[in-house]
Design a protein around this nucleic acid. Structure first.
Lengths: 323, 323
DNA sequence: CGCAACCGTGGAAGCGCTTCCACCGCAAGT
DNA sequence: ACTTGCGGTGGAAGCGCTTCCACGGTTGCG
């Protein structure tokens, strides 16, 4: 069997000590041009590739920043929101020469985050959909930043859910809508509750009935939620869905029911994803500067500079055809 | 400073040897109930979490399967296609108790794949957008499966690009279109060439002019490509774009130009992503069973059972409003 | 011309974990 | 009673890499 070459092989081949070979390969520490040349030749000849695990073990250093998504099913990884987080993190990470790893953490296994965060080779983790239990099981030393709600030890970064929601709802009410229903996020997600709070408050201020239907950020659920809403409260004339994906689902669900948008019912979402201006009708929504948020979170874990427990980023209303 | 606890700490605390502690924690090898109990207690008390790097180093085993995407910018990670691959891989991986890591490999650094594949802790890699150079630089021992084109050592899995393309084009021609342009994939991607071949062949068979415009699977490029096509060949009456994202971009680009779809120009895509039925007008496309393909690829690398060099999965036409 | 400073180098000790191997005491077999 | 066998155990050797440290051999300065 062919062993994959190790640093020792390289050193032997180059006629230097493992220590010198290591210095050359890792680029740290002094080495004569001659030594450099010979080691480089040996590396090329043998096709040597450093073992990341051994290096991580020896240096206590990490080589990757992880983006971890908590959800019930791995399907959540297909969410464009996650894609944006990963891409933004990758950009920050690339500047520091570390890789990005995407992990799915099952909702029912809160300890998975602790395992991930502790593992050598992981420089830090950017957590999407932070849940209470997962955050609580975290060891003190963890380098984690959350997108959404944080905890005593975990700094959080998020869009101003409350403000964004309020903006959308005021727009809806301001354009004459009187019966506004809302498709929420999953109940296990604390940060989504902030949007629901805002909805409740605007309802109180404007005297409309609270019509909440649970959602899960998916298009599929958005469609069924729309049907539920119209069956339960037929006089509903506006639906606000947390997440554009859900809103697109609502649009689809309403189309199936033969409900006109925006004629009969106005629909608005949250996030302003790339597809929002491509739907039929184009979707009114409010922005979510995910890239900016993720970049801040990634920077926070990688550089470990202390940040305030919760940093909020503003959301601005984008009015299109659906309202 | 607080050190994170090691196995040795656990062993000391439990009053057993590191060897015994290891057996209990890893669940391999014999151990008395009494020893198990005490080690478990120590683990809980100390909040011990095994170090993945050290374990990988000692066992030569991996704990993760990687999904690697080759592209020019990390933005490609936001592509829903990638999301689907990751989710499907995660499902396969979960059954084997290994994690999934998503990596972005810069197009200009073909050796990155070799580094990734070789690293300890990586059980195998599922490669998206395989390029020739990357494949060629791979060490013999690599456990890689490609989605797209493979090589002597790397098995590949892909949708039947040729068949899918042919199906779409026949449908276009069959419904009376005479001047069909195509937005291709990036030129560095060999597997996308198969679709171009099919386009050329159908053109020859039907006597229409070859009108190729390079694309890159993005919506943005789709929109500009549409403008280019209409400027260069104003009598174009159908556009086939590789990738639904690009097709949605074409739709958007044509709308801006005031071109009616499907009245003036028919548009069709490839992949049948979740948004295809939500666009305006809804998008005609042909399916790409990505989940199935990714699952096969993941299984191939994880189980290492030899597979044929290239496995193709059928694509079926989905006619909607845009044609 | 002698001493300090310095650069490049190799030896060796670990990083935290697994696993081979030898060992002990015990119950069962002859 | 004396082997045999076996489940449970600890000692110790590594996995591949980095890095501390000590050691010549140069150089440059007084």
């Amino acid at each position: 069997m062919i062993r994959t070459p190790t640093l020792a092989d390289v050193a032997r081949h180059a006629g230097v000590s493992p220590a010198t070979a290591s210095r050359v390969v890792s680029g740290r520490g002094p080495a004569s041009p001659e030594a450099r040349r010979r080691v480089a030749a040996a590396v090329a000849h043998l096709g040597y590739v450093p073992d990341a695990a051994a290096r991580a073990l020896a240096t206590h250093g990490g080589t990757r920043v992880a983006v971890a998504v908590i959800s019930g099913t791995p399907t959540a990884l297909t969410d464009p929101y996650v894609g944006r987080v990963v891409a933004a993190t990758a950009e920050v990470a690339a500047a520091r020469e570390v890789g990005v790893a995407l992990h799915w953490l099952p909702l029912h296994d809160p300890a998975a985050l602790a395992r991930l965060a502790h593992g050598r080779g992981i420089d830090g983790v950017v957590l999407v959909n932070p849940t209470k239990p997962a955050l609580e099981l975290l060891p003190r030393s963890a380098r984690v930043a959350a997108i959404g709600a944080g905890s005593r030890q975990v700094p959080a970064f998020d869009v101003d859910n409350r403000g964004g929601t309020t903006g959308v709802l005021r727009h809806l009410v301001g354009s004459g809508r009187r019966h506004v229903a809302m498709v929420t996020g999953p109940s296990w997600l604390p940060c989504a509750e902030r949007a629901v709070d805002a909805y409740r408050r605007v309802a109180r201020e404007n005297g409309y009935e609270v019509r909440l239907v649970p959602g899960d950020f998916t298009t599929t659920r958005g469609a069924t939620a729309a049907a539920e809403i119209m069956a339960r409260w037929p006089d509903t004339d506006a639906v606000f869905a947390l997440g554009d994906l859900a809103a697109l689902g609502v649009l689809d669900g309403l189309r199936v029911l033969g409900v006109e948008v925006p004629g009969d019912v106005a629909v608005a979402g949250f996030d302003d994803i790339a597809f929002a201006p491509l739907s039929r009708p184009t979707l009114t929504t409010t922005t979510n500067p995910v890239e900016q948020i993720a970049a801040h979170a990634a920077t926070a874990v990688l550089d470990r500079h202390p940040t305030s427990p919760l940093t909020l980023f503003p959301s601005t209303l984008v009015v299109r055809e659906s309202t």
